[in-house]
C-alpha cells in the first residue's frame, strides 16, 4: 500500500473554477487516488477522518448545499442501495438548508431537461448556475459519468464539489472519499453533528 501523503509534485490543486473551457483532468495533473482509509482534499491525500471533517465544515458553511444522488442510490436495486439512500437522507436532514436534486440516469433529454429539478452529466453546470449552488455532493453516480460531470462543474462554475465514492474515489472532486457505503455515510453524519455542536458551543462562549 502506498503511504503517499501530499499534493502532486507540480503543486496542482483541485480547486473551484471556473478553471477553463476544457479543464485538465486531475489525473493528468498528477493527482492520484487515495488508498484505503484515506481521502483527497483538493488533490492532497489525507486520512479519511480529516476529509470527513472538511466535508462537514464545507456543508455547514454553505449558503446553498446540495446533494446530487445518482442511479446507484436513487433506485432500490439492492438492500445496500436502500440502506445507503436512507443514510444519505438522514445526513441531508442534519445540514441546514441542504436540498436534493437527482440524477436518475444519464440520458441526454430532448428537447431539454429541466436543470432546476434534475441534474444530468451532460450539462451539470446548468443545474449549478440556475440553482445558485455553492457546495454540492455527488454520490451513487457511475465512475465515468461522475468524472465527466465533476470536470464540467470545475470547468465552468465556482461550486465546491464533494464526491462520495463506493469504489476508489474521484480525483476530479475537491473532496473525495473512497469505499463509502451506508456505514461511512453515517460516520459523516456523526461528524456533521459533532462539528455543528462545536460551532454552537463556540457561539455560546463568544
Amino acid at each position: 500500500m502506498s503511504t503517499l501523503i501530499g499534493l502532486p509534485k507540480n503543486g496542482y490543486r483541485v480547486v473551484p473554477g471556473p478553471e477553463a473551457y476544457l479543464s485538465p483532468s486531475a489525473a493528468i495533473m498528477g493527482v492520484v487516488l487515495p488508498e484505503e482509509g484515506q481521502g483527497l482534499i483538493e488533490g492532497e491525500i489525507v486520512p479519511q477522518e480529516v476529509a470527513m471533517e472538511e466535508i462537514a465544515n464545507r456543508l455547514l458553511s454553505a449558503r446553498n448545499p446540495m446533494l446530487f444522488p445518482g442511479p446507484l442510490v436513487l433506485w432500490a436495486w439492492s438492500d445496500k442501495a436502500v440502506a445507503k439512500a436512507k443514510a444519505l437522507q438522514d445526513m441531508v436532514a442534519e445540514v441546514p438548508g441542504m436540498r436534493i436534486i437527482p440524477m436518475p440516469d444519464y440520458r441526454p433529454k430532448y428537447p431539454m431537461i429541466n436543470p432546476e429539478v434534475e441534474i444530468n452529466p451532460n450539462h451539470p453546470n446548468l443545474t449549478i448556475w440556475h440553482n445558485n449552488i455553492d457546495v454540492c455532493m455527488f454520490v451513487g453516480v457511475h465512475c465515468h459519468f461522475a468524472n465527466l460531470a465533476l470536470k464540467i462543474v470545475r470547468a465552468g462554475t465556482d461550486c465546491y464539489t464533494i464526491a462520495l465514492c463506493g469504489e476508489r474515489g474521484h480525483e476530479d472532486a475537491m473532496i473525495t472519499l473512497r469505499d463509502v457505503h451506508a456505514e461511512e455515510v453515517r460516520k459523516i453524519t456523526e461528524t456533521i453533528k459533532r462539528v455543528k455542536m462545536g460551532r454552537v458551543s463556540c457561539q455560546k462562549e463568544e
Binding site: L74, W75, A76, W77, A85, K86, Q89, I101
Partner: peptide, 18 residues
C-alpha cells in the same frame, strides 16, 4: 423489483421517472 425508487427519494424524482 429493479425499478423501485429507494424509499424517501420519490419526493425528489422528476415526474417523468415517477
Amino acid at each position: 423489483e429493479a425499478l423501485k425508487i429507494s424509499p424517501g427519494f420519490e419526493k425528489v424524482m422528476p415526474q417523468e421517472y415517477l
